[in-house]
């Protein structure tokens, strides 16, 4: 069991080193932090009363909503190289011939990218910290908001990894993952438009925002956890199938 995780960490460490030595992560982090800071400032100025309840509703809820939306674009960029580049530079064979199983390779890459995005997110922790000086103290809601965004990111990254396993072209990979993610976001429109309440409920359940919003409001439902874990697991499993198909 230890060897299972140490193999995953071996690859994750290397992937993290690659990410932190590439300019892409820093450019995206800089852009993301700047955007979040600017949005935070604007929402704060627009907020009429500075009470804990209104700050949550008029500042943090939209901030978390925007974060989720931005990662819809960032996740394909962060994941597009994961397998596409390995194929292009001929190193995928090196990994496939190693002691690592397919699932260990996929999890190694998944963990590294999720940790990279957590690094990006960590800069936004300064926002609630600033408000804490003004007396804001609803930390549980901030915690569930961040938990929700991390669960969403896990879904996005798993989709991106799957898309990257299908092609050796990073741009095509980014486009595929963006289309899948956009589709998962837009399901909510079909849910709203549906006349049949059961179909509407089912479609709502399949849409990421439906579950994410619960986390932001502090209403963490067990079915939302099941949804995030299932979607992430499903796309990681598809990635494994995609790697396996190379043997044949």
């Amino acid at each position: 069991m230890t060897s299972f995780f140490s193999n995953i960490w071996l690859l994750a460490k290397k992937e993290l080193a690659d990410s932190f030595s590439s300019s892409l992560l820093y450019v995206l982090t800089g852009f993301f932090s700047l955007l979040m800071g600017w949005l935070f400032f604007n929402y704060l100025v627009l907020s009429s009363e500075m009470t804990a309840g209104t700050l949550l509703q008029s500042v943090f809820n939209p901030i978390f909503g925007n974060m989720n939306f931005i990662f819809l674009f960032f996740a394909p960029l962060l994941t597009m190289h994961s397998f596409a580049l390995e194929k292009r530079q001929g190193t995928l064979g090196l990994l496939l011939l190693s002691n690592l199983s397919h699932i260990q390779i996929i999890l190694g890459k998944f963990i590294a990218i999720v940790l990279s995005t957590i690094f990006m997110l960590s800069f936004t922790l300064i926002l609630p910290l600033i408000l804490s000086f003004a007396g804001y103290s609803q930390w549980a809601l901030i915690f569930t908001g961040y938990a929700g965004i991390i669960f969403s990111i896990c879904c996005y990254v798993s989709v991106g990894i799957f898309a990257s396993s299908l092609t050796d072209n990073p741009v095509i990979s980014a486009v595929i993952s963006f289309c899948i993610l956009m589709g998962m976001m837009l399901i909510v429109l079909s849910a709203n438009a549906s006349d049949n309440p059961i179909v509407g409920e089912i479609l709502s359940y399949l849409a990421i925002p439906f579950h994410y919003e619960g986390f932001v409001r502090g209403a963490v439902k067990s079915y939302s956890l099941v949804y995030f874990v299932s979607v992430t697991g499903f796309f990681l499993w598809l990635s494994e199938r995609s790697l396996e198909s190379r043997n044949w």
Binding site: S21, G90, L97
Partner: peptide, 17 residues
């Protein structure tokens, strides 16, 4: 088999960075 063979494919599997 993969444990018993050292393999150099046509494109060397190297990480340039």
């Amino acid at each position: 088999r993969k444990k018993l063979i050292g393999y150099l494919p046509e494109q060397p599997p190297i990480y340039p960075q």
